[in-house]
């Protein structure tokens, strides 16, 4: 990564900025105040609704400068907000996720076809018991501590291409699902598409299992891809870090800026 800041403000801001943690540097604050004043004046000269709007932006800018508003906040809000909004699904009960895995379809198919593997991809499942060639019993953890169970029957089994299944008998979560495999163009591996169709709205599914179907499908495919491609799941498990609670447990500190 490259970056050497060429900023004039750093020289000026070094002392105060190091102390005023989380706040804009002095130069930035002055810039905002001056810019705000300029906009305010422009707004006043223009008059009308446009002028009022300009004045309001100017006032906000001035205030941000004067109070040294936090710099990090806009970066959080902006990038996500600026992307085009995704259109909501027309049929919320149907959700689909797709991923490309750098492996032949046979390998992906073989892993998924053994439903007993699925709790490795779906941590919200406790276990899947395979009852026969076409039937299995799925046991989910359930958000209220009570296990949620359903029986699954396989419908179509087209080797290395398509697998469809549906819930059978009495269940709180009636749904059907499919896994479609298709060779990706070039040497990119296999496009894997998981579709879940629930009878209940997503909020109801999330209430029982803790995740919306959309999130379930997406997370399951992400884990499938990692398992197939790398043989492991990337993780921050048990990794060290310092004090998370600002200012708590000062005994753990050996030294610091202030």
């Amino acid at each position: 990564m490259a970056s050497n800041s060429l900023s004039a403000s750093h020289r000026a801001a070094v002392g105060p900025a190091l102390r005023a943690s989380g706040r804009a540097g002095m130069a930035g604050r002055w810039a905002a105040m001056l810019g705000g004043t300029a906009l305010g004046l422009l707004g006043a000269r223009r008059g009308g609704w446009g002028g009022i709007a300009l004045g309001a932006v100017g006032a906000g800018l001035f205030l941000a400068g004067a109070t040294g508003g936090p710099l990090a906040l806009p970066t959080v809000v902006l990038p996500a907000g600026i992307l085009p909004r995704r259109r909501p699904h027309r049929t919320p009960e149907r959700t689909q996720s797709v991923v490309t895995i750098a492996a032949p379809a046979e390998e992906v198919y073989r892993f998924w076809r053994n439903f007993a593997n699925l709790p490795k991809l779906m941590p919200w499942l406790d276990r899947v018991d395979v009852l026969s060639a076409t039937e299995s019993q799925w046991i989910a953890k359930g958000t209220d501590g009570e296990p949620v169970r359903w029986r699954v029957a396989l419908d179509r089994v087209d080797e290395n291409e398509l697998l469809t299944w549906h819930t059978a008998g009495e269940t709180p979560l009636p749904h059907r699902a499919s896994l479609m495999l298709k060779p990706a163009p070039g040497d990119r591996g296999t496009e894997v598409r998981l579709t879940l169709v629930h009878r209940h709205p997503p909020a109801e599914v999330a209430r029982l299992l803790g995740l919306t179907p959309e999130r379930q499908a997406h997370d399951a495919l992400l884990r499938l891809k990692q398992r197939i491609e790398t043989g492991e799941l990337s993780t921050l498990d048990r990794q060290p870090h310092g004090n998370r609670g600002l200012g708590l447990n000062p005994a753990s500190r050996l030294g610091g800026v202030e």
């Binding site: 990090a72 060290p240 310092g242 600002l246 753990s252 050996l254 610091g256």
Partner: peptide
Amino acid sequence: RALCWNGTNDLRVERVPDPVLVNPH
């Protein structure tokens, strides 16, 4: 010992647990 970020322009040397092997690679 590790150098930890605690906020804007706030770095501190803290005592933290040692890292451990988690994944096979």
